[in-house]
């Protein structure tokens, strides 16, 4: 809930500090509707990755490879369409399948071999990006996509940027999965206590696998939207996105230790980061320095540390209190 107020305050601050009227009497900056749509448009891909990571982190896992998988799927999509001569819908379906496959690779290594998710996805983080670079030989970018496809990323539909509709659809889907279906229950139980979940007869491995495969699938969708927005598919697509996605999830109140978390929180976290980035860019001071990207990076990192610290301090305090209470200064002799 706190995050919602922070978000509103943040938005209001930028609305007043970042909106100006230029010499011709036209309002420019943060307060314009165009800018607001821009925020939405630019936060779709990171937002999708954050949605993908929410179930994973609720199961006390992590997936560092989503950004790289985004890059790989974008390249594959471009290749299927351009070199393979496939129509866009089929190329997109194939790309989504590849994303699910990438997620399945993570899932298999994590559940079948009981390897820690951190190191597995660190390996695939490198592998997926490397494959993308190898396929394109570091230089090929696929462009000249048809208008109809670019519509998804660049035009408006029913008043909103077209990709926002896809994003909302996925958000609702993940929200239903986590909050209205038994899978979400299972994810939480696994995150709080994998052994407890096993003793309750839950199919722990299958549900962990589901979370990672879903993450791969959503990363592939993000890749397609990314390609449509920029009109090109290139190997470095989505570099570093995983960090912003993780930050959004943790800011949104999902515990990195698993169990606790919500999709609405993640959406607020995504919004907070997106507004910060765009808002900074509209502040005259920052505009003069031309450093919006960097400043939002520093602030996001700091924000993540603050959110984490705020998350553990109550626990530390209560532990300390408990320790003091448990040790009597002198032994009562009775």
């Amino acid at each position: 809930m706190l995050l919602l107020y922070v978000l509103i305050a943040e938005w209001l601050f930028f609305y007043f500090a970042g909106t100006t009227v230029n010499r011709r009497g036209v309002t420019v900056g943060f307060g314009t509707l165009d800018r607001q749509f821009d925020i939405l448009r630019h936060s779709c891909e990171i937002g999708l990755l954050a949605l993908a990571l929410t179930p994973v982190i609720i199961t006390a896992g992590i997936d560092l490879s989503v950004g790289s998988l985004l890059g790989l799927c974008a390249i594959l999509f471009g290749k299927f369409w351009h070199d393979g001569g496939l129509p866009i819908p089929i190329a997109a379906t194939l790309a989504l399948g590849c994303g699910a496959l990438g997620g399945a690779l993570n899932a298999a290594l994590i559940t079948a071999l009981r390897l820690p998710p951190l190191i597995v996805t660190l390996g695939t983080y490198s592998l997926f990006r490397g494959l993308a670079e190898a396929i394109t030989r570091g230089s090929v970018t696929y462009t000249n996509f048809p208008e109809g496809f670019l519509f998804i990323g660049q035009e408006r539909w029913l008043g909103l940027p077209a990709q926002a509709w896809l994003f909302f659809a996925v958000a609702i889907g993940v929200w239903v999965l986590v909050h209205r279906m038994t899978f979400g229950r299972s994810f939480r139980a696994i995150g709080f206590s994998p052994e407890g979940a096993r003793y309750a007869g839950l199919p722990v491995d299958r549900h962990i696998a589901l979370a990672y495969i879903l993450a791969g699938l959503i990363a592939a969708l993000a890749a397609i939207i990314y390609t449509a927005r920029l009109g090109q598919a290139k190997a470095d697509a989505g570099t570093g996105y995983e960090l912003f996605a993780i930050t959004a999830v943790v800011l949104g109140g999902t515990s990195i230790f698993g169990g606790r978390g919500s999709v609405t929180g993640t959406l607020l976290g995504v919004a907070a980061i997106a507004v910060l980035k765009s808002g900074l860019a509209s502040l005259p001071v920052v505009m003069r320095m031309n450093a919006a990207e960097e400043m939002s990076g520093v602030l996001t990192g700091a924000l993540l540390l603050l959110a984490l610290t705020a998350g553990v301090l109550p626990r530390l305090w209560s532990q300390r209190r408990a320790r003091h209470a448990a040790v009597p200064k002198t032994l009562p002799t009775s």
Partner: peptide, 27 residues
């Protein structure tokens, strides 16, 4: 200090400092 003092997971702490430092340098 963040990892040992506050018992935060090192992966997330260093992820945050990684970005903050890199972007700070760029800034």
């Amino acid at each position: 200090a963040l990892v040992a003092g506050l018992r935060l997971p090192s992966i997330v702490v260093t992820l945050a400092t990684m970005v903050a430092l890199r972007q700070g340098l760029n800034l």
